[in-house]
Design a protein around this nucleic acid. Structure first.
Lengths: 118, 118
DNA sequence: AAATTATATGCCGATATAGGAATATATCAA
DNA sequence: TTGATATATTCCTATATCGGCATATAATTT
């Protein structure tokens, strides 16, 4: 069984750094494909392919404008990632870590035989 | 050129749902491999393999305890993901969106020929 | 109609998966 | 020492990917 398709979800789509760059560029405003090509210094077909993946997971939407196709960001699917990773904020944030220590101490007073984590 | 290795960074390591499950389990406290095997209902070799990937990107560390190997979470590498995805919070958060609208209006008063996004 | 511009798709090749099964290694128990 | 337990590694196979290149499609201009 190979890896899950890049179009499976936002997690997989966004694991590719070029696609994150594309999203970053679109965060400043919608753009036609060729703008992205020049901005990111990528070959046009690769940009179109990356955009296809991003569209399939709903991270971008497009609109035709003459012979250009203008792509626009839709960050909504990133919410899933944000929500998952947010739960871990305490593991690198010192303030949270300090708070956890206090809470651990309180718990230990309640049940003296509980063992401490972290 | 194939996809970037799963061990390239946290983005790639965490794109696999089983590995997220493992991290979720470890978030509650360190555990030996077999605990994870039973908890997640996965085959032992697959768990070991997933743990290897997680270790290579620094998301877990291990400690030997008798014949068990106890794994502990290190969320630090997730910070990169958090920081990247946080920049997009406004794209799904209504409050931010409303704020952006206000800011857009203010900008339009300054330069009347600026065009509006979103 | 022909040429130009903008974008998408198709084909190719190399490669790193993920799971399954078997096996290796290492520690502990009898 | 033998057996049991805990974990890691190896071999297997199928497949999706990424980039490069060529080409298809579609709209616009001359």
């Amino acid at each position: 069984m190979p890896r899950a398709a890049t179009t499976t979800d936002a997690f997989n789509a966004v694991a590719e750094p070029r696609r994150r760059e594309i999203l970053d560029a679109l965060a400043e405003g919608e753009r036609p494909v060729n703008d992205l090509v020049m901005l990111l210094d990528l070959a046009q077909p690769q940009v179109s392919k990356h955009l296809r993946v991003l569209r399939e997971v709903g991270l971008v939407v497009s609109r035709d404008e003459g012979r250009q196709r203008v792509y626009r960001l839709n960050g909504r699917p990133l919410k899933t990632i944000y929500e998952w990773v947010s739960r871990y904020e305490r593991t690198w944030n010192e303030k949270f870590a300090a708070l956890d220590d206090v809470l651990d101490d309180l718990k230990q007073k309640e049940k003296p035989n509980a063992r401490k984590r972290r």
